[in-house]
């Protein structure tokens, strides 16, 4: 029995090592820049692991907003979001302020980072896309 548990532990350790390797943000310059933006402007509320704060600040792990339509997500960064809007049927008490002071490239980088970190997998966001969405406001 002891052996089974040990082997299981060893196996999970190998798994997490492998997943850590594939997720390493330094591998891609946009991811590395996005991580920096995340740490400066997003981390306090959404937390180091993207898990948010229960009932107060939404998680960024596989939510409809994070993985969904890029223009909607870019607008959340530009305009912020009111606590009266539910996210996957959950309400979060704190308002998100607008981050329209961030440059197109910074928004593209941080969204690319968030969409490909914390267990997420979604397409990258480009500065040109952010520019076009911002121009419509």
């Amino acid at each position: 029995m002891k052996r089974i548990i040990l082997t299981g532990v060893a196996f999970s350790a190998v798994l997490s090592f492998l997943s850590a390797q594939t997720k390493k943000p330094g591998a891609n310059p946009a991811m590395a820049r996005g991580k920096k933006v995340y740490e400066q402007y997003c981390l306090t509320c959404h937390q180091v692991d993207g898990s948010g704060v229960p009932h107060l600040n939404p998680p960024l792990i596989k939510t409809t907003f994070v993985l969904g339509d890029k223009p909607t997500l870019v607008q959340v960064i530009l305009k912020g979001m009111q606590s009266s809007v539910p996210i996957d049927d959950e309400y979060y008490s704190n308002n998100m302020p607008p981050h329209n002071f961030l440059k197109d490239q910074e928004i593209a980088d941080v969204l690319t980072y968030v969409r490909n970190n914390f267990g997420n997998k979604a397409s990258a966001v480009t500065a040109a896309e952010v520019k076009a969405i911002r121009a419509k406001n």
Binding site: I4, I5, T7, G8, V9, A10, F11, S12
Partner: peptide, 13 residues
């Protein structure tokens, strides 16, 4: 065998 045992213990968890 390692994979199988690992899989089994993960399933238990």
């Amino acid at each position: 065998r390692v994979v199988l045992l690992g899989y089994l213990s993960m399933m238990t968890l």
